[in-house]
Structures are given as C-alpha cells and as structure tokens.
Amino acid sequence: MLERTRRKTRTEITFVLPAGHPAGPVSVVGDFNSWRPGANPMTERPDGSRAVTVAFPAGERHGFRYLADGGHWLDEDGADGHDGRNSLLHT
C-alpha cells in the first residue's frame, strides 16, 4: 500500500506492507536510490505492518520494487502502474 502526503514542492510516499508478509527484512529499492538493497529499509509499526517514507520532488515518475530477505522481489498492487518489470509511482 502507498500512503501519500503532498507538500508544496514534494510528495512524501510511505510504502507499507502488512504484518508478517513477507517474513524477514524488506527494503524498498528503485531508481530513486540506485536500486541499492537496504538503502530504504522498512521498519515495524505498532500494528505490526512495516513502512518507510521517502520524499520525492513533485511531478516525477519512478520505478520501484520491494526486496525481501533471500532476494525475493515483490510488486506493489496499489502502484500507479507497472511497466512489465517494476511497479511505477507518479509524484
């Protein structure tokens, strides 16, 4: 799930995964962090879900995916689109 907070010149996107799915550490990787695993690790919230917030300039498009423990890739069903390989996000 994606939660958005729009500011004057940027959009803050909170990437959220449900509690316990998938098990183990997960990070958000994309063109905004040079696809570096661990650059944006998700942390547990009080309700057990995991999240990380990233600020983006307004009016951009980015590709991203979730990378779970063991090299398991996940897509975001609630993304703004998919390009056949990555989830897409429009800020």
Rank of each mutant, 00 (worst) to 15 (best):
M1Q: 08
L2A: 00
E3K: 10
E3N: 12
E3W: 09
E3Y: 07
R7C: 03
K8D: 14
T9V: 12
T9N: 15
R10N: 11
T11K: 01
T11M: 04
E12I: 12
F15G: 00
F15K: 01
V16F: 00
V16M: 02
V16I: 05
L17S: 00
P18A: 10
P18S: 09
P18M: 03
P22Y: 03
P22M: 00
A23T: 11
G24N: 09
G24E: 10
G24A: 06
G24L: 10
P25H: 04
V26M: 00
S27V: 06
V28D: 05
V29G: 11
V29P: 02
G30W: 09
D31A: 08
F32I: 13
S34M: 13
S34P: 06
W35T: 14
W35C: 14
P37Y: 12
P37R: 15
G38T: 04
A39G: 11
N40I: 01
N40W: 09
M42G: 03
T43S: 07
T43G: 02
E44Y: 05
E44W: 01
R45Y: 00
P46W: 02
D47V: 03
G48M: 02
R50K: 04
R50G: 01
A51L: 02
A51P: 03
V52K: 01
V52Q: 05
T53N: 04
V54C: 06
A55F: 01
F56D: 12
P57R: 10
G59N: 13
G59I: 11
G59S: 02
G59K: 10
G59A: 12
E60W: 06
E60P: 02
E60R: 15
R61S: 15
R61F: 06
H62K: 12
G63E: 14
R65L: 12
R65D: 15
R65S: 11
L67W: 14
A68M: 14
D69I: 01
D69L: 12
G70Q: 03
G71M: 08
H72S: 08
H72N: 08
H72M: 07
D75H: 10
E76V: 05
D77K: 12
D77V: 05
G78W: 04
G78T: 13
A79N: 10
A79K: 08
D80W: 05
G81L: 04
D83Q: 06
G84H: 13
G84I: 05
G84Q: 09
G84W: 08
G84E: 13
R85S: 12
N86H: 14
N86E: 05
S87T: 02
L88Q: 15
L89A: 04
L89I: 08
H90Y: 12
T91W: 11
